[in-house]
Design a protein around this nucleic acid. Structure first.
Length: 423
DNA sequence: TCTGGGGTCCTAGGACCC
DNA sequence: TCTGGGGTCCTAGGACCC
């Protein structure tokens, strides 16, 4: 392990060998995760700059850069074209997401083996609760050291922040990377947070930072002391909570790992290398994106009532439009035509379209079965079409024989006309 | 030299109902 | 002729996160 870091070494020693008082929340963050998996799988890439991201010659961005590439100033979310200029000899890959998901679940399994209280926040991050007495009485620091070692045995590394709540754990995890363990001993939260810029706290982005600066608030200490009333225009209903978090006084809940998955929306979007202007192309894009949304809905047993169509005309200008269906559906043969209908109300043919997105949400099925003479509704109250069965069958064939085996007319048109042009 | 894709949550205006 | 207030739903947009 690279080392442990703390802001009070006497207290650190006692937390390691003595009793930890109160909640102990950890945040595990996998170091340069996608790039690390690529280096694990390609021994020749180890020690070299590796960039996982979109095409540098199109409209791509960097997803993850290995630490070797970061030395050149490359970082996540940077336009790929810029990354290529900074680090022209980097090894590029689009990424292998099934492989990342597989590695991620192995890491999550290690966490689950140490404590049943795990909140996975993304593919490479999870909070976990190792409060003494809640599940085990072992020192939280010792548990974190063991987690770190066990993750390293998989061939990737992680950084861990440990403290009395999620805000502290998250900020601590970022202090020492890669392979760090940063411990904020209970009682030292306020002193740790006070000097940090407001941006260090998750939930405060560029826009809130600017608004706070106008109020003369630059550090978390100042935020913690601010009058809640002046914070309300910035944070709305969350003003009191943001103040409490900045003071290090938040009380975090980490739920049991088997808590039911609570997905709110499923969407699929794509930015094209060349703008679309033709209605046929846009509808083909909607159909292909919708097909993937339908497949994912069925896989997860979800059916939604709200259809969302999203268009972007330039990097910063776009429109979204939603329509609520009378019945939930998981069938793209039902919701794709709706999305296509919505197209005319936010787009005039000829206007350049940079991005098309299709999404489904509002999965609340508690409304129960409704009968409607004019549409087919199954026993769950889910609206289907006579083509749903075909979609399911096609998906089964593709799973078995590969994605390109079956193509509908519209998807083929999309693949030929748009994707190739896109290259 | 330009800026992805997957999400979550909050706000605010207008419709509609009582 | 003028005109309440509260509640809820629907819709569009934007901030933020990884």
């Amino acid at each position: 392990m690279k080392g442990e870091h703390t802001y009070d070494s006497d207290a650190f020693a006692s937390s390691l060998f003595g009793a930890w008082s109160g909640p102990a929340i950890g945040l595990l963050d996998l170091d340069a995760f996608f790039a690390s998996v690529e280096q694990l799988d390609h021994p020749a890439w180890r020690g070299k700059p590796v960039i996982v991201g979109g095409d540098p010659d199109a409209r791509g961005v960097v997803s993850t850069a290995s630490y070797e590439a970061r030395k050149f100033g490359v970082h996540s979310a940077m336009p790929s074209s810029q990354a290529k200029r900074l680090c022209p000899h980097a090894i590029w890959t689009r990424g292998h997401f099934d492989r990342y998901r597989e590695m991620s679940s192995q890491v999550m399994a290690i966490l689950a083996d140490e404590t049943p209280f795990v909140d996975q926040v993304s593919i490479d991050e999870a909070f976990f609760d190792v409060s003494p007495g809640r599940f085990s009485s072992e020192s939280p620091v010792v548990i974190c050291q063991r987690i770190s070692r066990r993750v390293a045995e998989l061939g990737v590394t992680c950084s861990i922040g440990l403290g009395s709540n999620k805000t502290i754990a998250k900020i601590a995890s970022e202090r020492e990377k890669p392979r760090g363990l940063t411990v904020i001993v209970p009682g030292t939260e306020e002193a740790f947070l006070a000097p940090l810029p407001v941006r260090a706290m998750s939930g405060i982005g560029k826009s809130a930072e600017t608004a706070l600066a106008r109020l003369g608030i630059h550090t978390l200490g100042q935020l913690a002391r601010a009058d809640e009333r002046i914070l309300r225009p910035v944070f709305g209903v969350n003003a009191a909570m943001m103040k409490r978090r900045a003071a290090g006084a938040e009380v975090s809940a980490v739920s049991a790992i088997d808590a039911p998955e609570d997905v709110k929306s499923v969407s699929n979007e794509r930015t094209f290398g060349i703008d679309l202007t033709d209605r046929k192309d846009v509808e083909a894009a909607i159909a292909l994106l919708g097909e993937s949304v339908g497949r994912r809905l069925r896989k997860r047993g979800l059916a939604g009532k709200i259809v969302t169509l999203k268009l972007k005309f330039s990097y910063s200008k776009g429109r979204t439009i939603q329509r609520k269906l009378p019945h939930p559906t998981d069938d793209e043969n039902v919701f794709v035509p709706v999305a296509c209908e919505l197209l005319s109300s936010i787009w005039a043919p000829g206007t350049h379209i940079r991005l098309v997105g299709v999404g489904m949400s509002d999965f609340d099925m508690s409304a129960g079965v409704q009968t409607d003479l004019f549409c087919e509704v199954d026993e769950r109250g889910v609206q289907t079409s006579d083509r749903r069965e075909l979609s399911v069958a096609v998906e089964r064939v593709r799973e078995k024989f590969g994605r390109d085996v079956v193509n509908f007319g519209r998807a083929t048109r999309f693949a030929d006309d748009v994707v190739r042009r896109d290259k």
